[in-house]
Amino acid sequence: MTSTPAPVVDAVRRNNVHVSGNIGGRPIMFAHGFGCSQEMWRFVAPAFAADFKVVLFDHVGAGGSDLAAYDRGKYDSLHGYAEDVIEIIEQLDLWNVVYVGHSVSSMIGVLAANREPARFGALVLVGPSPRYVNRGDYFGGFEQSDIDALLDDLDSNYLGWSSAMAPAIMGNADRPELGEELTSSFCSVDPAIARQFARVTFLSDNRADLRAVTTPTLVLQCTDDIIAPLAVGTYVHDEIPGSSFVLMEATGHIPNLSAPDQVEKQIRAFLA
């Protein structure tokens, strides 16, 4: 087998990377979770612009990413996404990166930092879960059937059979279209990709990767988060050696939208 050099990848274009803020400052990279795009950080990222070099990007399949770059094999595990994160960091030549990952991007950050620890200065994991499905003694909060139900909901909402198929099937073209709004500009995601990303997000098991983390890590836990319950956040904290843990007052799974001030405050306190 002859090996040809890998083609040069333009990760910045592929992942719709936006760099702003203090260009000479320490890089802080925000990674969005499943179901949305870099807009998830709209209320948090600007708060760091004065002193940090702010890096925002979309995972392939989300937002303004290059859908043509979607390779079902590569993105069939979180490793493919972690590879992209590393490629962005290398292309921008970032060092001492503060990586802030929300939800599934927490684990993507863990994988990336474990592969290239020299590039990372801090990990902030917002609502992390290394495994969503319960197994044995491990409590992830969900059963396989819950994940199957989510995939049903995704189909109901994204595939919008009613917009494309129902009028044809039912001869009822005046039916209101379902789901059309969801594919509008906000948090746009490709439905077929969202399906696979949902599987990869909710059916991965990255518990074994937590112990290997050497980057200083902050776990940001919300109150009453059904996606990443307190027990899971505590587990992540216990497994990552030397990690810090903060239980915020913010409720739900997306403090970056519901309580951006708290998120900013905790990140700054951790980095101080």
Binding site: S103, F142, D146, I147, A149, L150, D152, F202, I226, G252
Partner: peptide, 10 residues
């Protein structure tokens, strides 16, 4: 449960 996931992520 499935709808909770969708509610929170989307």
């Amino acid at each position: 449960r499935g709808s909770q996931l969708f509610h929170e992520t989307r």
